[in-house]
Amino acid sequence: MSTDRDTTRIVRSWLEEGVTALPDRVLDAVLDQLPTTPQRRITWWPARRFQNMNTSVKLGLAAAVVVVAALLGFNYFAAPNVGSGGLDNSIPTPTPTPAPTATPIPKIPDGDTLEAGTYRANPFIPVEVLVNVPDGWIGGGDWLLFGPRGVEPPDGMNIRFGSVSRVFANPLNAQDGFLDPPVGPTVDDLVDAMLSHPGWPTSPPTDVTIDGYAGKVVRMTLPPELEIPENGFLLFQDGQSGDRWAFEQGQIIDFYIIDVDGQRLVLELFSYPDTPAEDLAARQAVVDALQLAPLP
C-alpha cells in the first residue's frame, strides 16, 4: 500500500510530464481577435462596491437608482418585460453596470463566486427561473449552482435546473438505454417512473408548491456501499439531451418536480450526510423563493 508521501511524490513526478508549449496557431488566433474583442472598462459603479456596503446603504442606493431612472423618463417599469412572463425584473443585482437604470438580470455565470443577488437559471425548457442567490455561492453555468463549499463530499451541495426527457433504464450502465415505454409528460408520470424504477433508491414523494406552482419532491439516497462506475450513477437526459448523473456513495438527491403551466421543471438538489444544516436551510430558502413563470 502507498503512503501519503509516496502518492505525493508520484503525483508530482507525473505532473511534471506533458506538454507545455502552446502552438503558435492558437496564440495567433487570440491576437487576431483582439481588434474585435472590446475590453470591459472600469465604470463609475465599481464592480464589487455593492458587496462591501451594508444593507441599508444597498437599499438606499437601489432606491436612488430607481428615482434617477424615473427622473430621466425611462419607461422601464411601465413597459412589459420581454419574455419575463410578468416576473419582477427590476430587482437590483450586484452586476457591475454603469447605466443608472435597473439592470437586466444576469444568467448564473460559470466558475464565479457569486455576490448575493438575483440570477436567471436555464432549465432548457420554456420556463423562466429567477434565483435569489446568497453571497458566496458558486456559479457552475446557467443551469447549475454550487453551495459555498462546492458540491463535493463530505459537505458540499448544489442545485441543478432542468427537465427530464428520458430516464436511463440502468443507472449503472448507459448501454442499457432508456426506460421503454418512455416516461409521460406530467409530474405524476415522472414520479411514478422514479418510484417504480428498479435501480433508483427513492423515498415516497411529498407535495410541494413553489411560487404558486404545485409539484412533488422525491428523495434518492445512494447507498454507502454502492459501486458507482466511472460514468456515474446515470439519472436521465435533460430537455436538451444532456446527461445528468449522481456520482458519490451516500449522496442525497432531492428531485423537485414542478408543473409550471404544463411545463415540467425538475430541480436536482445534491447534498451529503455531512452537509451542514445551516447550508441546507439556506438552500431551502433559495428554493422556496424561486420565481417561476412559463415562457411563450
Binding site: S2, D4, T113, I138, R149, E152, P154
Partner: peptide
C-alpha cells in the same frame, strides 16, 4: 475563489482517490 477549508477538503479527496488508484 473558494474557502481554504474547501481547498483542503478537495485536495484530501483527490489525493485519496489517486492513492486508491495506485
Amino acid at each position: 475563489g473558494v474557502p481554504a477549508g474547501t481547498v483542503r477538503s478537495r485536495l484530501h479527496h483527490a489525493m485519496r482517490g489517486l492513492r486508491a488508484a495506485l
